[in-house]
Design a protein around this nucleic acid. Structure first.
Lengths: 245, 245
DNA sequence: ACACACTGTGTGTGCCGTACGCAGACCATA
DNA sequence: TATGGTCTGCGTACGGCACACACAGTGTGT
């Protein structure tokens, strides 16, 4: 197991390049390519990120990109690495719950800034520096809980799953945007039309038992913390169970 | 708000076609197309589902498919609808926890049968009959908990998020497959190589504090129930909080 | 000085989703 | 029963995609 086995992009991100080599100097750095791709994705969505568009944004030909990145999947790795950036530092004198909440909020904010991260197809568990940094901070939140290594990892994964899932529910729907509330209204109307009380009694009752506008498809800030707190309550129960016995 | 406003595929799935019309009879039904597409996806992954391949599997030309489906996104709707099938019926005399667990397990099993469902890009909340059926059953699990309509929905969404997320972690990794454990082993080795104890002390400690093979990237059955139970513990705390006041 | 690895480029391939126009099949109506 | 209009399936075509490959020039280690 040596560094050479790693995908080229990971070698670069970890600064593991070998000694200097003959030939022309590269014009760009990986970070330039990542920044250009992220700009495209932020503006027009992940679908707007193609090798040719990224290259064009840099004044390059399409195929030049492959001198820096072996495949589009590797470009995604670079994008994710730069989009997340540094996690928030751990404040001393805080409870595990405060720490993991801050971590989750920072995670959510990163997703808000770059909603496309949820659409990037994940093929492997993360190995890039910043991703590990986030993992490190997530694990650190449970340091003084008495949870075992395996339990800490599971708890962190649980929160990670939740934040990703909650983000997916609200992706593309910023509640301020007029087309959002329009979509929400339309959905509720259609649901009301289709949810025949005979076949779907619970949905129908659920719909009727509250003001129409309140059946939120959106997942707003309140919903986020509601679900997060519920998840953390579960973890709290786990901690209690592990420490009492 | 009338049925005509619905996307054509939804009209078909709900059996809302208008009166008979002149012209030739369609050769196929939506379900034939869905079955062919699902077969492709089950065998070679969602990437193998293209309009031309689905059409070819049916002995059709590519463009004929567009007589049944307005876009590839609509094909996805048909695929999801058929892939999930009927949810498990609710057994009488069970606790909410048993009911939602059965629901989650059935959901997970559907994902196991058709792992590609997690890769289908979701653009809208679901409105097709079976999706509503699953929603109905999920909500029904919380019927006797005293939770409000909004809380029941939130709780169901929380479980839904968890099962999806847990599935995503184990997608493509069936623990029996040799290439799976190989990938897991490789990942742990690389992680051990890259996780410098100075920069990532918690990860390093976590890695060392257990047998190497035990740092599971995989999310196996035990992990699934561990996370599910933790989530349900959180919901249980919610129920307790709402009923004591 | 020189060999050669490396750079950016141009061309080309095989996919993809889908727009559009056509010929023939079929049914409601006259 | 005749017929008009509409629907079906097909063929062609377009722009875009990821990527293979060969090429010419560049600049460093020997």
């Amino acid at each position: 197991m040596t560094a050479e086995d790693l995908p080229r992009v990971l070698q670069q991100l970890w600064g593991l390049e070998g000694p200097a080599r003959p030939g022309p100097k590269p014009t760009f750095q990986l970070s330039d390519i990542g920044a250009a791709a992220i700009k495209l994705a932020d503006t027009d969505g992940l679908g707007a990120v193609s090798m040719s568009k990224v290259a064009a944004a840099l004044g390059f030909t399409t195929m030049s990109l492959y001198r820096y990145v072996d495949s589009k999947d590797e470009l995604y790795v670079v994008m994710l690495e730069q989009a997340f950036g540094q996690p928030v530092p751990v404040e001393p004198g805080t409870t595990w719950r405060e720490r993991i909440t801050a971590w989750a909020v920072a995670f959510r904010d990163a997703i808000r800034r770059h909603p496309w991260v949820l659409q990037v197809p994940i093929t492997e568990p993360p190995l890039s520096p910043m991703q590990l940094e986030w993992m490190e901070h997530g694990l650190r939140a449970f340091e003084d809980t008495g949870l075992s290594a395996a339990d800490s990892l599971s708890a962190m994964i649980l929160v990670n799953i939740y934040v990703r899932g909650a983000g997916a529910l609200s992706v593309g729907m910023t509640p301020d945007a007029p087309e959002y509330s329009e979509a929400n209204r339309l959905y509720v109307q259609r649901l009301a039309m289709l949810a025949d009380p005979d076949r779907y009694p619970t949905i129908a009752t659920n719909l009727q038992s509250r003001p129409a506008a309140d059946f939120d498809v959106d997942y707003d800030a309140d919903d986020f913390f509601f679900g997060l707190d519920t998840t953390l309550d579960g973890i709290e129960a786990l901690i209690a169970r592990r420490t009492t016995r």
